[in-house]
């Protein structure tokens, strides 16, 4: 082992002790290693009990988000060399419940994603025999950026509003809603207002902008939220002043279970 670097990991073992603690490991400082490679090395060679999530090792599956020296990061795309001489402090993503070691509870996030009805809603049912919808490259570009979210939750970790207000639906979910709202094939804006206008919706955002700074895929949730606020404000006043003019959702696309 030539050069090494110290890694300090925030550990939490609920079955052993009630509070989290820090544990230090020393790993080789290999030129191409990411922080994740260091964690893999620890698990394989130093401590089999360290738990964390990972899968693709190419920054697209969204599993390996953690706090690295206090900043949310994808650990597979954050490299040891950038942190010389160390030590590197690794913690679970902030603003989430921690289940064990570096593993956070993502159920709440999954529920929030679903609450914005992230599927294509159309007024009329289309059949395969109708062929493809036309969508020009410009129409695609109008929402393409918002399709790039990998659900890594770094933005939730960076956002103080998420930390202070657990009802806030959050940056990724609103960006996802906007991904469909701005898709010319979709006509579900009205169905999504219910979540986005309500308590915990887009107006809970106080425009800190941290989500866009944290986003590894340049989705720009801040922009998505502010653009919704402009549309949502119009809808809000319509509902208040002249409810008839408010856009009533025709359907929300949900397929019910039949007993």
């Amino acid at each position: 082992m030539d050069k090494t670097i110290k890694i300090q990991v925030r550990r939490y073992l609920p079955e052993k002790q009630p509070d989290p603690f820090w544990q230090e490991y020393e790993v080789p400082l290999e030129p191409k290693w990411g922080v994740l490679d260091a964690l893999i090395y620890i698990k394989d060679h130093l401590d089999g009990s360290l738990s964390y999530r990972w899968s693709c090792h190419m920054g697209v599956c969204g599993s390996c988000g953690m706090m690295v020296n206090g900043e949310p990061a994808l650990t597979c795309a954050t490299f040891l060399e950038e942190y010389q001489p160390g030590p590197i402090r690794i913690e679970p993503l902030a603003n989430f419940k921690v289940l064990r070691d570096l593993i956070i509870d993502t159920d709440d996030f999954m529920g929030k994603l679903k609450s914005v009805k992230p599927w294509l809603i159309t007024d009329e049912k289309r059949d395969i025999t109708d062929g493809e919808n036309r969508q020009t490259p410009a129409e695609l570009k109008a929402f393409k950026q918002y399709t790039l979210c990998i659900n890594c939750m770094l933005c939730y970790s960076a956002c103080p509003v998420v930390g202070l207000n657990e009802d806030f639906v959050g940056p990724a979910a609103i960006a996802l809603a906007q991904r469909y709202n701005y898709d010319n094939r979709d006509s579900g804006n009205a169905a999504r207002h219910d979540t986005l206008l309500a308590h915990g919706g887009a107006f809970d955002c106080t425009l800190i902008g941290e989500c866009s700074r944290a986003c590894p895929k340049h989705v720009d949730p801040t922009g998505a939220i502010q653009r919704y606020k402009a549309d949502g404000a119009m809808e809000y006043w319509k509902r208040l002043i002249w409810p008839k003019a408010a856009t009533a959702p025709k359907n929300d696309g949900i397929v019910k279970q039949i007993d």
Partner: peptide
């Protein structure tokens, strides 16, 4: 495509 997959497009809007 009907479920919303963002396929890349030709200038005329076809996939």
């Amino acid at each position: 495509e009907h479920w919303g997959c963002p396929w890349s497009r030709e200038p005329d809007g076809s996939v």
